[in-house]
Design a protein around this nucleic acid. Structure first.
Lengths: 252, 252
DNA sequence: GACCTCTGTTGCGTATGTTGCAACGACTGT
DNA sequence: ACAGTCGTTGCAACATACGCAACAGAGGTC
């Protein structure tokens, strides 16, 4: 809609990956370098980018500042923190908190596991709905019509041999998740990792976010993973209580 | 330089403070609401903002994502982490890591203290040079000419009764800091808090960042604070070593 | 040390993208 | 059902952001 803004935001994405030079950026978005220069200057005034030496541009402090302000304003993140930190400390596994946004999952918090297996995730990163445990939990909590709308509209990229590949399979899986109250990602997203997830609820019983535990398969087989479900659910229940949820107070 | 971009970035700052409605924002930056709408749409496409319900706008996930990517790319942050985390755990006091940027200090990491006294700081937040221990350390590390240039160009807002208020006083203080190898903020920034800071150095002996410890005055008097200096310096030395610094390897 | 190249920077005229307006439509609350 | 509020759209006028081409300054090479 707004060309210059659109270009500027694209620039930010490029710079985020690695420090860039003016010509790099100009070529990348296909405009004259003087145009890029002017955009960068405006971004620099607002501290969204800063210069490193004479030629390289990096992201600036405004990004950190705004991001942290925004994270602070996500209530569920704060209210779930004690329970999730405890779960992470108790089990040693990686714990994620995620919410639904525009057909995808967004990680809003992460507690790193003690094992050195690096996961390709990060606070703020987005992931597909159909192959993540948190995605299943979040969509399963929606009314049937919304579920179908989402199932129809999303893509089903095949990321591992276990990935769900069709809307009908996805809907069936959601049905199962809604019934059980938790979801499993049996190496459907990353080959060597499987996860379980459960919902965190608010005062009216609505699902605010989903919390998950991710475990490398070499550390724990499928049965061992499922054995962790009660542990996870204890944590999400505690997080829900901190978010205003009451056992019987469902429905407003 | 770029009007629409400038406006859009101003919008982001507003939204960061609290969720805003279209008209709020339009009035705030003094343009027609349709203009704001179009800017917000572009920001929304890039996930820099998201809508909450029909009318409210909040910061979106791209902010978190980019910010975290950028934080990961700050080498000194990662290399200093173990030493600073240990210092924080050992003493229980709030630890900051900061660097110099455009006439101000920017906090690039923070380890929350165990005491409930809330400090008005946050990763990404900026603070003045003349009234912070980290600011003094960072400027004291620069060559004399640069020091003077900075001392002349910055403002000296009075934030507490102890705040340094003139360039000459500031330069004298910098001299002292350079000689001692650490800096003190004796309640010059916030009334009830005093701090000590020391430099973190890289392979060529250059100062990459400054680390500080902030302690409420009610918890520790001035002498008690100074007694923590060896502890802090042990941590910054360890952080420097992790950043490539070697005791004798000064000068490249 | 002079030359060359590479990259960031500036001034300027033009066309393009952005703006404000006004009318429309969706939603809320009375 | 009606009024009021707020988000949304189409359009025409204008200002703005664009590309060009020439300049400047740093780094490297001969």
């Amino acid at each position: 809609m707004s060309q210059s803004l659109d270009r500027a935001l694209t620039l930010l994405n490029s710079i985020a990956k690695d420090a860039r030079t003016l010509d790099d950026l100009a070529e990348e978005i296909g405009v004259h370098k003087s145009t890029v220069l002017r955009l960068l200057r405006t971004l620099e005034q607002h501290h969204f980018v800063r210069r490193e030496g004479a030629r390289y541009y990096r992201l600036g402090s405004a990004m950190f500042d705004l991001a942290n302000q925004a994270l602070d304003s996500i209530d569920v993140r704060r209210s779930a923190q004690p329970a999730l930190a405890a779960l992470n400390a108790r089990t040693g596994h990686t714990v994620h908190l995620a919410s639904y946004d525009d057909g995808e999952v967004v990680y809003i918090d992460k507690y790193e596991g003690r094992h050195s297996v690096r996961m390709y995730s990060r606070v703020g990163k987005r992931a597909p709905l159909h192959c993540t445990a948190v995605g299943k939990v979040l969509v399963a909590a929606m009314p049937a019509s919304k579920r179908e709308e989402i199932a129809r509209s999303i893509e089903y990229p095949v990321l591992t041999p276990n990935t769900i590949t069709s809307a009908s399979d996805f809907l069936a899986e959601l049905e199962r998740v809604a019934r059980l109250g938790y979801a499993v990602d049996n190496a459907e997203h990353e080959d060597f990792i499987h996860c379980i997830a459960a919902p965190v609820r608010g005062a009216d019983g609505e699902v605010l976010a989903a919390a998950s535990m991710s475990v490398p398969k070499v550390l724990l087989d499928y049965e061992g993973l499922l054995a962790l479900v009660p542990d996870l659910r204890a944590a999400t229940t505690e997080a829900s209580v901190h978010s205003g949820w009451t056992e019987n107070g469902k429905g407003h």
